[in-house]
Simulated assay, not measured.
Amino acid sequence: MFCFACRHFAPPTYGNADEAFIKSGFRRWKKAHGKDGAIEKHISSQCHKTSCIAWADYQRNKADKTSIAQCISEAYQKKVRENRHYIKTLGEIILLTVTQDISQRGHREGDDELNPGNVPDEAKDVSKAEQLALVIRFYDEIANCIQECFISFTQMDLLDAASITDIILKSLDKLGLDYKSSLVGLGFDGASVMSGGISGVQKRIRDKAPFVYYIHCYGHRLNLVLINVAKYVPQAAEFFSLLEELYIFASNSVVHEKFILIQREMLPEEQVRELQHLSDTRWWCRATSCENALLVQQIAVKIVQIVKQA
């Protein structure tokens, strides 16, 4: 037995438990059914949900008679507009921080701070290639203060600890910095490739620079707290699961067409809202999803009732 959605629309990577439904066909019937059965687990897997979304997108494009070339062209134009918006926003931020003579990164985020810090995150270029952002903080003896400088973005072909360590140390060597005796601190996220105490980046650098102290980024710590809190609060976990199921439901070509039509009828003066796919690593998308779901709540209820009656 195969899963139609996953066999035809599965993402490039998936778990071992999903492989039978995609490649070889599921045959273990004694373990197929029940709450902990293989079929139920597969239906709840991220692979299956992603495949259903891709299948729904395909059905919608087919119903609209939209070609792949048109999708690519529209997606490209949308990406250009987004990138221009991002570049403009980044430019405005840099102008503000330069005008106020404050660093791009800081450690004070309290409500009573006049100039709270700005915390950067990972970066990808337009082709989705991973980039390593290198920033150094140092004590300026002339100005008698802590300074911070952005050094570079470096495209990463490999994302293992050895490759990342090599890029960091080569960048410091290129600047003529004696990291073996002068480097005293490192700050990254908590991923094992970065923070691992046996072969992670921080351990590899500490082997060469004995005075280094590793700090787990507080921004990433907060993100991990939010993710885990949501998972262990039943109401929150059920709520976000419902949002994801609602998104998958509304992505069906027939349902999506009615969803847009009813939205335009009930809210003729409002901009059409689309439900958002959730992400575990970007909480802003969850906020957007909640906002859109709240604005179209009555419409979502009506479309569910229409489909149920049909």
Rank of each mutant, 00 (worst) to 15 (best):
I248E: 05
S171C: 11
E257I: 12
L132V: 11
H277S: 15
G34A: 05
V126I: 04
K180R: 10
V98Q: 14
Y213S: 14
R84K: 02
H8G: 04
G197W: 13
K41P: 01
Y247M: 10
R7A: 11
I87C: 02
H8S: 11
V193N: 01
E269Q: 11
Y179P: 01
I205P: 00
I262K: 12
K231D: 02
A38H: 03
K231C: 08
I102S: 03
Q202T: 08
R81Y: 02
K231S: 07
V307W: 03
E257C: 13
V301R: 15
Y14R: 01
A69Q: 03
Q77N: 11
K124Q: 06
W29S: 07
F26H: 11
L243W: 03
L224K: 09
Q263K: 12
M266N: 05
D173L: 09
D140L: 06
I146Y: 08
D207V: 09
L275W: 00
D140Q: 08
S279E: 07
I299S: 00
L169H: 05
H216I: 04
I146V: 05
A161S: 04
N118C: 12
S51L: 06
D189H: 07
G190S: 10
A38N: 06
G187F: 07
L169I: 14
I248A: 03
P210Q: 03
K170P: 08
I299C: 00
M1A: 11
I142M: 15
D189G: 04
F211H: 14
L134E: 06
E270Y: 11
R221F: 07
S181V: 13
R108K: 10
E245K: 11
I248P: 10
A250C: 11
H107R: 08
G25W: 13
L96D: 10
A191L: 04
F188Q: 04
Q70A: 06
L261S: 13
V233F: 01
N115F: 12
V80A: 03
S251C: 14
G200Q: 00
S171P: 13
E19M: 06
G187N: 12
R264E: 11
K302H: 15
V126H: 03
Q131G: 00
L275H: 04
Q235H: 13
E122T: 10
V304S: 09
I22G: 15
E148K: 10
R108I: 15
D125G: 00
A162P: 06
A5M: 05
K79P: 04
L175H: 09
A69C: 06
R206P: 02
L169G: 05
F240E: 08
N16M: 10
